Simulated assay, not measured.
Amino acid sequence: MARYAFIWELGGAYGHLGRMIPVARELQQRGHEVVFIIRELVEAERLLGPHGFKWYQAPLWIGRVLHLPDPLSLAELLMGFGFLDPPALLSICRAWRNLLAALAVDALLFDCSPTAVVASRGLGLPSLNLANGFQVPPTARPLPPLRWWQKAPPARLLDSEQQIVHVTNQVLYELGAPPIENVLQILSGGDDVFATLPELDHYPQRAGGDFVGPIYALGRGEAVHWPAKGALKVFAYLKPDYGGLDALLTVLSQLDASVLVHIPGVSKRTIEKFGSDQLQISRQPLDIEQVRQSCDVAVLHAGLSTVAAMLLAGKPVLLFPQQLEQTMFARSVETLGVGVSIAEAAAQFPRLVKRALADASLAEKARQFADKYRGYDQQHAIRAVADRCEALLGKA
């Protein structure tokens, strides 16, 4: 049997581990071993420990790059993570190689791990890229711009890509590995499998793609107990560092609704300030299956996994994106008519939230989306990715 390394380098929240853990458990049941090399260790004990997985800290860029403009493309996004500094990037790549050698793995599964992809180049380890869509754009030169509302001069985009390729090839030369030809070879370490649905793709212009469907199982969270007060059941999953948190909680507390809110690591002050007989706040994740079957609407930051889980249950969403990836994804959701994206403008929250909740078309479109995918079974998606992982062994 084989030993796989499941690797997650960039991005936050539960989504990355949420995609990888079900696939790892499937491989484990088939007799393989899976080790995790991950960005954030805070939740590892709770999420990985119960399944007997071993985990290691991913070698990460922790420096700061000053005076960079807002990134217009994924190439420019990489500039903030060491891809402008050949010596530093080389050091991190050597750390990756040392770790992979020490673990003696047979194959790799990447989830948003560009430096690990570069480091593994030339090692002869077969790999698969499990993507949510954002980190692997459609093939184009230059790559598609991320900020569709902003002018993106093609000359700037091409120049940025050339810089990234030049720095990466300097590092690959030192590692004795074959050079790359384009930025996509950094973003994707092998065949791409998209754990999403075509309608939810971050890039509406993508043609084709291996879409297996969303994978959002995290195991069971806490049992769901809705506050008794309130006609509408509203579930919210929010982040404690969200700039509009207090303003949004104020709006939710004023609704004629039974509100359950999950905020990981939320302060005691916030719980005491906003908790009531119609709004309850939990630091611990709630059982996502119970939540999506019993809620009427979900208030989220536009993380793909939770949004997909809600839509597949026919529940509309109100989205409050925190960063660029979520903003792109929220646009796709809004285009479907199953949700509303609300920018961080706290003064507008009461009006926008109440207007969205009163829009019956959102719930109707969400039910139509769920009907279209009524036969979707994420266990099939999990098995399909595990099959692809096993197929890698024949490529070694």
Rank of each mutant, 00 (worst) to 15 (best):
Y4N: 06
A13S: 14
A13L: 12
Y14C: 08
G18K: 08
M20I: 05
V23T: 11
V23M: 12
R25F: 06
E26D: 14
L27D: 01
E33S: 14
V35W: 03
I37F: 06
I38T: 13
E40R: 14
G49H: 12
G49K: 14
W55V: 07
P59V: 11
P59H: 12
I62V: 13
R64I: 11
R64F: 11
V65P: 03
H67R: 15
A75R: 08
E76K: 11
E76I: 01
G80M: 02
G82K: 06
P86E: 11
P87R: 12
S91P: 02
A95G: 10
A95Y: 02
N98T: 12
A104M: 09
A104W: 10
A104H: 13
D106A: 05
L108K: 07
L109F: 11
C112D: 12
T115L: 11
A116K: 01
V118Q: 00
A119K: 01
F134L: 15
F134R: 08
V136N: 08
P137E: 03
L143K: 07
L143S: 05
L146C: 09
W149A: 10
A152L: 03
P154E: 04
L157A: 01
L158H: 04
T168K: 01
T168I: 03
N169D: 07
Y173H: 14
A177R: 02
A177V: 05
I180H: 03
E181I: 01
E181W: 02
V183E: 02
S188A: 15
S188P: 08
G190Y: 08
G190V: 04
L197E: 00
E199C: 06
L200Y: 00
A207D: 05
G208W: 01
G208R: 07
G209E: 01
G209H: 10
G209V: 02
Y216F: 15
R220F: 00
E222N: 14
H225R: 15
K233M: 00
F235H: 11
A236R: 06
G244I: 05
T250H: 07
L252Q: 02
S253Y: 00
S253V: 11
Q254K: 05
A257F: 04
S258R: 04
L260N: 03
P264Q: 12
K268Q: 15
R269L: 07
I271M: 15
K273D: 02
G275Q: 09
Q278G: 09
I281R: 09
I281E: 05
R283D: 04
D287H: 13
I288H: 10
Q290Y: 03
R292I: 04
H301L: 07
L304F: 09
S305E: 12
A308F: 03
A309S: 14
L311I: 04
L312P: 00
G314A: 00
L318K: 04
L319D: 05
S332F: 00
V333K: 01
T335W: 12
G337Q: 09
G337A: 10
G339D: 05
A345C: 02
F349P: 02
K354S: 13
R355E: 13
S361N: 12
S361A: 14
L362C: 06
R367W: 02
Q368G: 10
F369L: 13
F369Q: 00
Y373M: 09
Y376C: 02
Q379C: 07
A381E: 07
D387E: 15
D387S: 14
R388Q: 15
L392A: 10
L393F: 10
